[in-house]
Design a protein around this nucleic acid. Structure first.
Length: 363
DNA sequence: AACCCGGGGAT
DNA sequence: ATCCCAGGGTT
């Protein structure tokens, strides 16, 4: 076949060549493949949302060691699940994972459902993740459309426009559907096919400097033929990122415990444990007065500001540290406020910059 | 359709 | 410094 597959002739050109490439050059030993159970597949797909493989691997291994099966996850305390997720980001993934596990216990006999609609109904599972789970765990014939597939398809077909824009995404879904394995040789290999797309995108059809000479589609790729691999996929529309600022109070008592506050259940770092915050130094002073005896109120010291970048804003954290406090009785220990010893930090979900601040300044 | 939600790897 | 990654949920 001389031309790339189209919506009309998708046939088996794409799958057959991709699988041949995968057999020789694909990744066959990522941690969630051995063993490749539905639970491990699901967990890996959630962790891999917007997160690169190398980042996920240590978190995945720690998570499945602590919670090796779905029923174990379902009965685990939310704080412990968040602790296992701590540092990985997008914490709603962990909360949704936990809620979905409970749902599987209540409605699906303790297993992940082998059904597209039922999977899609679980929190944290969208169309692409549902397809990835069905294809990889059970060999079901469903397409995926992640960042890798979007990149491969926009280049192979020369598709302009930001791939996340609804109109472009709709077209890409149609192409992904049309490219699915359809012959007796490829149809039984849905798990490999799904993995192969992601491997091609991650190792050959990379965002910068793609290795086109190693690509099985270098002869048919529109972007390659027109020298547009650096332009496709179209980058996201530029936006001005606002800068925000906050102050955090790092209060330690005479035993070296730190006062932590639970964050609100919505917004950034929802439900995680963090340092008490204030908008200005007056607010910090008021927090100190609330948690320390007036008779022993030292001034404390400013630590170097921390710059933390999110997708949609930048945050400057100005930490204020004060040691040797004798906590005021009854103020500091409830569901939203706790004095925590350094050894107990590991059991709590704590925002990455806050954990880093504390670790780097604790002897 | 636009926005919200983290952290880090790659360049 | 900038982009964006094995996306999904909410408004």
């Amino acid at each position: 076949m001389e031309s790339p597959p189209t919506e009309a002739n998708g046939g088996d050109f794409f799958a057959a060549r991709l699988l041949d490439w995968f057999d020789a050059h694909g990744r066959h030993d990522l941690p969630w493949m051995h063993p490749r159970t539905p639970y491990r597949t699901w967990l890996s797909e959630i962790m891999l949302q917007q997160t690169q493989v190398a980042t996920v691997i240590p978190y995945f291994l720690r998570f499945v060691t602590a919670l090796p099966e779905l029923p174990t996850l379902a009965v685990t305390a939310p704080d412990e699940v968040l602790a296992l997720w701590s540092g990985l980001g997008y914490y709603s993934r962990a909360r949704n994972l936990h809620a979905a596990a409970k749902c599987c216990m209540a409605a699906h006999g303790g297993d992940l459902p082998r059904d597209f609609t039922a999977l899609l109904a679980l929190p944290g599972i969208g169309r692409s993740t549902a397809g990835a789970i069905l294809a990889q765990a059970w060999g079901e014939r469903f397409p995926i459309l992640d960042g890798n597939v979007k990149r491969v398809l926009t280049r192979l077909y020369g598709i302009d426009g930001w791939p996340t824009a609804p109109a472009v995404e709709k077209r890409l879904w149609a192409l992904a559907e049309a490219a699915l394995p359809s012959s007796p040789a490829t149809r039984p290999r849905m798990a490999d096919y799904t993995q192969a797309q992601m491997d091609l995108g991650a190792t050959v059809c990379t965002r910068a400097r793609p290795r086109c000479d190693e690509c099985p589609f270098t002869d048919t790729c529109v972007a390659k033929r027109e020298s547009r691999t650096s332009e496709l996929p179209t980058s996201r529309p530029k936006k001005i990122i606002p800068q925000r600022e906050t102050r955090m109070l790092w209060l330690r008592d005479i035993e070296g415990r730190t006062l932590l506050a639970r964050r609100p259940t919505s917004g950034i770092w929802a439900s995680l444990w963090s340092l008490p915050e204030a908008d200005d130094q007056d607010g910090i002073d008021r927090l100190v007065a609330r948690h320390a005896h007036a008779s022993e109120m030292p001034r404390g010291e400013a630590l170097p500001p921390i710059e933390h970048a999110f997708t949609h804003f930048r945050l400057r954290i100005r930490p204020w540290r004060l040691d040797g406090i004798a906590p005021r009785a009854r103020v500091g220990d409830n569901d939203d406020l706790r004095w925590v010893a350094p050894e107990a930090f590991a059991a709590l979900g704590i925002p990455a910059p806050v954990r880093k601040l504390i670790e780097e300044n604790t002897p």
